[in-house]
Design a protein around this nucleic acid. Structure first.
Length: 502
DNA sequence: AAAAAAC
């Protein structure tokens, strides 16, 4: 397969823009998708951002817009002919900037609309007329209702991060938008992950799609080292600091499962003296933008964020991603760790597994078809003297838990460390079950996702509608301690935290 | 168990 851009039948202005950006050879997703889109076919593509996905659809799309004049009689001189939809504002901004660069030497206009910012400038852009419109769903609907955007002549729709666009939260908005578009159109759909349900739903929006798999769906990059540490909830922050130091990490994304958790962790890490910024959906758009810019500029080292930042954000050289919380959706694990190890670079993904998280880890394993080696993490300073801040925190916990504050006997924390450091604990039958991956039996001949797609019942939300619960014994077996290595005596495998319920 | 996307 030829992979040089020069072999493509692209118009001169597009070739010029590509050359100017220093691109010579196509990435796998580009080599596969560009000819298909040029031929006007629908596409269902499995790919992450950072693999050149945006160029893979925008270059051929711009080419088609250049070569095939819109012949329908329209009063608008610049009707919207291509619509690109994304699930977050930052992503819309990022993709729009890229498309603007590719279209730089053409007469085609592009614009981006998303919420959280003033509508007026967007309205002005739309009134001038744009051929390519990049948008998030909510704000686009606003513009449709205000008659700022007329979508009756859209020829191409791109659903990027399609798994999210088609999930239960977005689907109604998406359906409303699609109802404003012509039935005959080309639809391109991309995502790094596809559940069988989303896959089926996606196919219902496509006409004889060509499947493009530059990467296996739901697969994590081979260049990302994935580590799982079992850590007590109270130790998570120290664990992050420890790993940052031990691995000499310059920068990292730190994902939390909630906005509140994100805000709190940010403040706590700042108190620890680390430079960080928070990015979550309760921040103003201005703050979100500033957080991202500060991280890109290296003014902060840690971007503490919710899953708003999980998908598609293309930031160069992020050396590590921490899952401070194990994500609720296994798909989000794949997206989150896709922020590191991009474009062939090496990356590190660290997931902190708290006592109650075994089932979530099992879901991740099933999706990525890899076994998580959950290891205990030996934190230094278990016997260190309690500082003033620790004392304050312990007092707080004591009050919260109904103990009288200020007691100075060996705290629950210290006894946890003591438990860890006792070698030769008797084996715990509960934790010593051999682990067997759930999907192993059917993984052999067909790719598991394909098999699952064929056999799964046509139910939108299996988690809600079917019992999807594994025997506790099997899941907990993930915590089987790793074999102790020589010289590791003080990092003995963690057993249950000393009678803590979990 | 939550997040995201419009005011």
């Amino acid at each position: 397969m030829t992979t040089a851009y020069s072999t493509l039948a692209l118009a001169e202005p597009l070739k010029r823009a590509v050359a100017e950006m220093g691109y010579e050879n196509m990435t796998p997703i580009q080599a596969q998708a560009i000819p298909v889109v040029l031929a006007g076919q629908d596409v269902m593509g499995a790919a992450q951002t950072g693999t050149g996905k945006t160029a893979a659809f925008s270059l051929p799309l711009l080419q088609r817009l250049l070569k095939h004049e819109n012949t329908s009689a329209s009063p608008a001189r610049h009707p919207v002919r291509a619509l690109v939809l994304l699930p977050t504002r930052e992503l819309a901004d990022q993709v729009a900037q890229q498309i603007a660069l590719y279209a730089k030497y053409t007469h085609l206009r592009s614009a981006v609309v998303f919420g959280g910012v003033d509508m007026k400038p967007q309205t002005a852009e739309l009134k001038k007329g744009v051929e390519v419109l990049v948008a998030t769903p909510g704000r686009l609907l606003d513009h449709i209702e205000a008659k700022n955007a007329v979508l009756g002549q859209v020829e191409y729709v791109v659903l990027d991060e399609a798994d999210r666009m088609l999930d239960i939260g977005f689907l109604p908005d998406l359906q409303r938008i699609l109802s404003h578009l012509p039935k005959s159109r080309t639809t391109l759909l991309f995502s790094a992950t596809f559940s069988p349900e989303i896959r089926r739903l996606a196919e219902s929006y496509l006409h004889q799609p060509v499947a493009i798999e530059a990467a296996r769906p739901n697969e994590t990059a081979a260049t990302v080292e994935q580590l799982f540490f079992s850590v007590d909830g109270d130790d998570k922050r120290r664990a992050v600091r420890h790993i940052l130091k031990e691995r000499d990490l310059r920068q990292a994304f730190i994902f939390t499962n909630s906005k509140l958790g994100c805000a709190r962790l940010t403040r706590a890490l700042e108190r620890d003296g680390l430079r960080c910024a928070a990015l979550h959906g309760d921040k103003s758009q201005d703050e979100r933008l500033k957080a991202l810019e500060a991280f890109k500029a290296g003014e902060v080292d840690l971007l503490v964020c919710t899953d708003v930042a999980a998908r598609g954000l293309d930031i160069k050289d992020v050396p590590a991603v921490f899952n401070y919380d194990v994500p609720f959706n296994a798909e989000d694990y794949v997206h989150r760790i896709g922020r590191t190890g991009r474009a062939g670079a090496s990356g590190l993904a660290v997931t902190l597994v708290a006592p109650g998280d075994a089932r979530l880890v099992a879901e991740v394993e099933k999706l990525i078809k890899k076994k998580a080696q959950v290891q205990p993490l030996a934190l230094p300073g278990g016997e260190r003297r309690e500082g003033r801040e620790d004392r304050g925190r312990r007092d707080f916990r004591d009050r919260r838990d109904g103990r009288s504050a200020g007691r100075s006997d060996a705290s629950a924390r210290d006894s946890v460390y003591a438990t860890r450091q006792l070698p030769g604990q008797p084996p715990d039958p509960f934790f010593d079950q051999p682990y067997e991956p759930a999907a192993q039996g059917e993984a052999a001949e067909l790719p598991a996702w394909e098999k699952a797609a064929r056999s799964a019942p046509a139910i939108a939300r299996p988690g809600l509608l079917s019992p999807n619960i594994k025997p506790r014994r099997q899941v907990a077996a993930l915590f089987k301690p790793r074999a102790q290595e020589p010289g590791e005596a003080d990092a003995a495998p963690s057993q249950t935290p000393d009678g803590q319920p979990g």
